[in-house]
């Protein structure tokens, strides 16, 4: 058994529900995560899958402590980080990195690619030898050195996402949260980015939480999967077991709803079972 990097127990997160906010006064809290128990094993990629509103992004944000849990505990690398104040979190942040969904909005338009990648290095006291470190980060993600002086708008979507990965990995973190990092990309670019992340995660021994709505992608990339629905874990197991033998009806529905790129004349027919539930 691999030692877990993250140990999550009874995790609950409540956020203000702005749709029910009175005109004057505070919005009532809505519980987004309703009690999570799981471990993220060291050095492997764990998929977190669910439909919109299932709370998968909230879970990710709680892991990297962009959100403070309302109950339960998060253990990271043997340390309880559940309620650590920001000042004490800061030294840990270099090991808690994120790759975002939309690099267009997560890369500063007024900074060069080099300065974007250098920012986390400087903040973590690795400001010496910056040029070489940036060059290494670019090379790692397969971008030419000439990109160092460019700006975000001069790059294609796939190149931008490579910059996002380069920035997250510049500090050689222990943990990377990848939240829907390919959902804005074309399939051909998506394949490049995912194979890159797969290779880097293996080479660097990264622990990755890979949030996605796409089970096909998860099967390729992840060793284990957490299926979420409405703030709860539906099923968590090893990837192959989940696909070969899903235990929950919801998991089966999710898998069955994926349109595979192959002809299947009966796919759009309404199954007899759905018409007359037994």
């Amino acid at each position: 058994m691999v030692e877990p990097l993250f140990s999550v127990r009874g995790l609950k997160v409540a956020l203000p529900d702005m749709t029910r906010k009175p005109l004057i006064g505070r919005a009532p809290l809505a519980e987004i995560l309703k009690g999570f128990d799981f471990d993220l094993p060291k050095g492997s990629v764990t998929g977190i899958v669910g439909e919109s509103g299932s709370g998968k992004s909230t879970l990710g944000r709680a892991l990297v402590r962009l959100l403070e849990p309302s109950a339960g505990s998060i253990g990271f690398d043997g340390r309880d980080i559940t309620h650590l104040p920001e000042a004490e979190l800061r030294p840990l942040r270099r090991n808690l990195q994120m790759i975002f969904q939309d690099p267009m909005s997560s890369l500063n338009p007024r900074r060069t690619i080099a300065s974007i990648i250098a920012a986390p290095l400087k903040q973590n006291g690795l400001g010496d030898n910056l040029k070489a470190r940036v060059a290494e980060a670019l090379q790692r993600v397969g971008l030419p050195q000439s990109f160092a002086g460019r700006y975000r708008h001069e790059l294609s979507g796939g190149q931008r996402q490579r910059v996002g990965i380069a920035r997250a990995l510049a500090l050689s973190p222990k943990f990377v949260l990848a939240d829907e990092i390919v959902s804005g990309l074309d399939v051909s670019t998506q394949a490049q980015i995912l194979t890159l992340l797969e290779k880097l995660a293996a080479d660097m021994g990264l622990t990755v939480a890979f949030i996605s709505h796409d089970l096909s992608v998860i099967r390729r990339l992840c060793r284990q999967v957490i299926v979420m629905r409405e703030g709860m874990i539906v099923e968590a197991s090893a990837t192959d077991a989940l696909f070969d033998n899903p235990r929950q009806a919801y998991t089966r529905d999710l898998i069955g709803a994926i349109p595979l790129p192959e002809i299947d004349a009966g796919w759009l027919d309404i199954p007899a079972a759905a018409k007359a539930p037994t």
Binding site: S188, S216, R220, P261
Partner: peptide, 9 residues
């Protein structure tokens, strides 16, 4: 390039 869960690799 299109991912398939039936044939991930």
């Amino acid at each position: 390039a299109t991912p398939r869960y039936t044939d991930p690799f």
